[in-house]
Nucleic acid binder design. Structure first.
Lengths: 160, 160
DNA sequence: ACTGCCCTTTACGTCAACGTCAAGATGCTC
DNA sequence: GAGCATCTTGACGTTGACGTAAAGGGCAGT
């Protein structure tokens, strides 16, 4: 048996995935309730395989880009159903394209927001460099931001 | 009196803004309740000026990129407070930069999601072109999407 | 003066996405 | 076999962002 097959056959407990993706068990069960996941059972306990893990990744990515769980479910379902005939697939294709258009619009929004914030930053930097240059954050602070983004903070958008 | 000044002095009723930005009066009052807007009054009625309108634009953009109202309020407050001393401004600057970093991360997520969807699209297109080329959407459909995006559907992300 | 229409405030309802117990099953280990 | 950890299924609570209904003020037209 090849390594690849063994990797594909590897399974995960609910805790495994919770730790890996930093979500609570409650969240995973909730996603299952809503039909976004359907792990196997071993006795009472849930057993997640690679496919389940991949779906979870898609769920979390979808959330980060602002999709609701029902929207995410739609998309996941489309991925699944695509063996069920050509008409179904054509429908999926259309939905995919709509999603792409929506995401591209959202990207533009983000770019706009970034630009706006950058403008504010520049104004403040100019002001500060005139009146209190000592308060201007130096390279240190940038490093800190970079470090935060690189290790352990994949989802900095939710300060809640 | 110049045209510019007159434009700046122009005011808006609640309905004006609701129609223009496709939100409900309830939403505007809610934002006011939460301290994101504070329009003038004329008798009982709210009167919005250009500054209020600009703030509303920022609010809606913030929402589209996934910020909560309280986060948006923080940012708006920072824009306002920046006369209150250099220390305050340095703090704002830091927050702005954090926001920018978060938005850039989100942008990467979106790019990833778009790529993923594009991949799915291509697979489906290949499949369809083999088995049912007649079902492949043509230029027509693209036009429809474009039209939808151009007039009257600035916010296609919220199918809710 | 009466009818509409739009404005106002107050207050309760709702929906999504979980959090938070509660109560019980299963399995390890000392 | 008693304790402990971890799993399970309910079921109710919570937060954010409004929706919606109730009760009334103000003004235009007839």
């Amino acid at each position: 048996m090849s390594q690849d097959l063994r990797r594909l056959e590897r399974t995960f407990t609910i805790r495994n995935l919770c730790v890996e993706f930093k979500v609570t068990p409650r969240a995973l069960r909730f996603y299952e309730d809503k039909g976004l996941l359907y792990p196997a059972r071993e006795g009472m306990n849930r057993v997640y395989n690679h496919r389940d893990r991949a779906r979870l990744q898609l769920i979390l990515r979808g959330k980060r880009v602002g999709l609701s769980l029902s929207e995410i479910r739609e998309i996941l379902d489309l991925y699944d159903e695509n063996d069920g005939g050509a008409a179904q697939m054509a429908k999926s294709l259309k939905k995919f394209r709509e999603r792409i258009a929506a995401l591209e619009a959202q990207r533009e929004d983000i770019d706009g927001a970034i630009e706006q914030l950058r403008g504010g930053c520049e104004r403040m930097e100019r002001q500060l460099s005139e009146i209190r240059p000592d308060l201007l954050p130096q390279a240190d602070d940038y490093d800190q931001v970079l470090r935060a983004r690189l290790d352990g903070t994949p989802d900095a958008a939710h300060t809640a």
